[in-house]
């Protein structure tokens, strides 16, 4: 049985090791609005912040390009930092970049590697908790959106999405809809219909 819970709601009268919870007096409580699945012992936030993990792809904007390091705005509680010797070519302020998380250091700075500048296009900000649904299993959802809208799309786990070319308005609408309706069954069919792609074809 899955159920929606709010911050402070008790999930178990035993201590559980579960993300997005606190254990107080031996009892486990949610700290977020989320979907709690007791049998699978999982709590998935429906509203949540981004907690970076090594290897994740992020999108950001160059805030302060300097000689040795570049400071990246990730629209998150953490700053990104690129050590310039890892970069090829020139990065300048306000460039949109795609990069990979190497690590989160003690001061709340994320060391980024493999940066790539994304030229032109626009960014969309979505809730980081919705990124897995926007990507879909095996990235099938985002591929379908790219195909249906003829847009090049790059999705950062920090909740920034870069779009270029094709039908921007449709791509934006589709992504915003996934963000709002990710919890409602039949999402893939609704999105496929919206972008004019047959889901049958995807299943084969």
């Amino acid at each position: 049985m899955k159920k929606l819970v709010i911050p402070g709601e008790m999930l178990s009268d035993k201590p559980l090791r579960l993300d997005h919870t606190v254990v107080e007096n031996g009892k486990t409580c949610s700290t977020v609005i989320g979907l709690y699945d007791e049998s699978a012992s999982s709590l998935i936030p429906v509203e949540g912040l981004w907690y970076p993990r090594p290897g994740e792809k992020v999108i950001g904007i160059v805030e302060e390009a300097k000689l040795n390091t570049d400071l990246i705005n990730l629209n998150a509680p953490y700053k990104g930092l690129i050590i310039s010797k890892f970069t090829e070519g020139n990065i300048v302020n306000n460039d949109i970049i795609e990069a990979t998380v190497k690590e989160l250091d003690k001061t709340g700075t994320i060391i980024l590697i493999r940066p790539r500048v994304l030229y032109g296009g626009k960014l969309l900000a979505v809730k980081p908790s919705k990124v897995p649904r926007i990507l879909g299993k095996g990235e099938t959802m985002i591929k379908m959106i790219g195909e249906g809208t003829k847009s090049s799309i790059s999705v950062g786990t920090n909740g920034l999405i870069w779009l270029k070319g094709g039908d921007y308005d449709l791509a934006t609408n589709v992504i915003m809809r996934i963000q709002e309706e990710s919890h409602v069954p039949g999402l893939t069919e609704r999105i496929a219909k919206m972008v004019g792609v047959s889901t049958q074809q995807n299943r084969e």
Partner: peptide
């Protein structure tokens, strides 16, 4: 508003 923002709180 805080809960809606996803900022973790141990109670509401």
């Amino acid at each position: 508003a805080l809960a809606a923002s996803g900022i973790p709180m141990r109670d509401m």
